[in-house]
Simulated assay, not measured.
Amino acid sequence: MQQDVLVLPDEGDGVRVIACSGEFDQATLEPLRQACARAVADPAVRRIVLDVSRITFADSSMLNTMLNLLRSGRLVLAGPLPRSLARVLELTQAGRLFTTVGSVEEARTL
């Protein structure tokens, strides 16, 4: 499985963008978990934007990671939501828990 987690350079606006691409399951989530933990621990970060638009596969372990990040009170998902992630959110009825917008730019302006 191929996946990539890229933490974009902060722009001084208190928004940390974590861009995800590829397939995310229990075996590939550690880089994302580490990036999320650093963002949550950084007092300068007031919003964490998870760019999920390029995820090709996501399972319940990805959802669990997102729910843990949601507890920080600072998470916004930037889409559009890929089909596999949208399906997980639909099946679990967890979609309504997340603030989801159409792009990283839109998430920055919330």
Rank of each mutant, 00 (worst) to 15 (best):
G95T: 05
T99E: 15
M62D: 05
R46D: 13
R83A: 13
C36L: 14
Q26Y: 04
A78I: 04
T28W: 05
V76H: 00
S84C: 11
L91F: 09
F57W: 10
S53H: 05
A86C: 01
G79W: 11
G12K: 02
L6N: 09
A39D: 08
E105R: 11
T56H: 01
G73A: 03
L110W: 13
A94I: 04
A86F: 01
L6I: 06
A78D: 00
Q26T: 04
F98G: 00
I55H: 04
L110R: 14
R87Y: 12
L8Y: 01
L32N: 03
Q34W: 00
R108H: 12
Q2E: 14
R87T: 13
G95H: 07
V104N: 01
V5C: 01
Q2N: 09
L69W: 15
L97P: 00
S72W: 10
A86Q: 04
G14V: 09
L50I: 11
T109N: 10
L81R: 01
V49Q: 06
E23G: 07
F98A: 00
A27Y: 09
Q3P: 00
G102V: 02
S84I: 08
T92A: 12
V5I: 03
L70P: 00
A78C: 03
P31G: 07
T28N: 02
P82R: 01
A107P: 04
D13V: 06
M1L: 08
L8T: 08
Q93D: 12
A58S: 07
C36N: 10
F98P: 03
D25R: 07
F98D: 00
S61H: 11
S21K: 15
E106L: 13
A41D: 11
Q34M: 03
I18V: 10
E30I: 07
R87L: 11
V17P: 08
V52L: 07
T92E: 11
L85C: 08
T56Q: 07
E30C: 04
R33G: 10
T65V: 15
E90D: 14
F57M: 10
S72D: 13
G22P: 04
V7F: 01
P80H: 05
T28Q: 02
A35E: 05
R47E: 06
G12P: 01
D25K: 02
M66F: 15
G102F: 08
Q26H: 01
V40F: 07
G73R: 02
A35D: 04
S72T: 09
S72I: 03
E90Q: 10
A78Q: 00
Q34V: 06
A58L: 06
R74Y: 14
F24R: 00
A39I: 12
R96F: 05
L85I: 13
D25L: 11
R46F: 09
R47V: 15
R83S: 12
D13H: 08
V101D: 03
Q26L: 05
S21I: 07
E11S: 11
L70R: 14
A58V: 05
L70W: 15
M62H: 04
E30A: 14
V88I: 14
V17E: 06
